[in-house]
Design a protein around this nucleic acid. Structure first.
Length: 276
DNA sequence: CTCCAGGGGTTCC
DNA sequence: GGAACCCATGGA
């Protein structure tokens, strides 16, 4: 008998993660609900994710085994290297942080690829989550490389850079189409470079991102947080004020699904940088 | 029909 | 700096 050595799925303990809340709270727009779980892509990788109790299970749409490289990729994507329960316990010493933690304790900040995070949050401007996700999906299927199982990768900057806004008409992204192309061009030409952004001081990276048409303070903050693992250093009161200005200009909403998660993500990242 | 959704650009002052 | 207005699109 030959032992089965390939792994057609990977499982790990979520460490208190709520998969559904994490995927659909508004930090990522690359996941879809399917009959047997949540199908999503990141970079050149695609998976179907499920949660059974505390266990997170990932499998390929076609059932293919995972390589070591893919396992590491998803491990990093879901930030499984961080001890969230311990992190949250520390946050709860602060009143504002505690409120964010208690709103939805199962949310983790995902580590998403830079370019797709940038474009997704450009699309997000003056828009709502279901439509953002629909536009992202059309962007992938229309301009991305097929990954099998009906999934498509997020298009590369080089694929979008030569296009004209009318070429993106099928996205139904409206006036944002020219923003997407400008972002793709600046990344493809190296005027905006992920490695350089990561090496920069966060405030400088923020300014650099804002040179892209359609990227202002809010989009830049989201890209720094979700796509670059970076955040600016600022005193707590400044940071909280910015988060609240961005997120809840009219005051904290009561039952708006996802919003509490966004607040938590904002605060979590700040706290990770400053309370360590 | 009007309003607005996780903004940003432009054009004023 | 801040305020008004516009930008496409689709759902309530």
């Amino acid at each position: 008998m030959i032992e089965e050595t390939t792994k057609n799925s990977m499982q790990f303990d979520g460490g208190g993660m709520n998969l559904k809340a994490t995927l659909f709270c508004g930090q990522s727009f690359s996941w879809q609900r399917t009959e047997d779980g949540f199908a999503g892509t990141a970079g050149n990788h695609c998976v179907v994710a499920r949660q059974n109790g505390s266990t997170i299970c990932l499998s390929h749409p076609g059932g293919a085994p995972f390589t070591d490289k893919e396992e590491r990729f998803w491990h990093t994507y879901f930030a499984m290297d961080l001890d969230y329960p311990a992190l949250q316990q520390r946050f709860c010493a602060n009143k504002n942080l505690r409120a964010c933690v208690m709103a939805e304790p199962g949310i983790r900040v995902l580590r998403q690829p830079f370019f797709e995070t940038l474009l997704a949050f450009i699309i997000s401007q003056n828009n709502h989550i279901p439509r953002i996700a629909a536009i992202v999906q059309r962007l992938k299927t229309g301009f991305g490389a097929p990954l099998g199982g009906g999934q498509f990768a997020f298009p590369l900057p080089e694929a979008l850079a030569p296009l004209e806004p009318e070429d993106l008409a099928e996205l139904q992204a409206g006036y944002r189409a020219k923003y997407l192309i400008d972002a793709a061009q600046k990344v493809a030409l190296g005027q905006v470079n992920e490695g350089e952004l990561r090496a920069m001081l966060p405030e400088d990276a923020r300014k650099k991102l804002c040179t892209i048409l359609g990227v202002g303070s809010k989009v830049a903050d989201c890209v720094l947080l979700f796509g670059l693992g970076q955040w600016q250093t600022a005193p707590m009161d400044v940071w909280m004020k910015r988060a609240m200005t961005h997120l809840f200009p009219g005051g904290m909403p009561k039952e708006t699904e996802g919003f509490e998660g966004i607040a938590q993500q904002y605060i979590f990242h700040w706290a990770r940088q400053n309370l360590a």
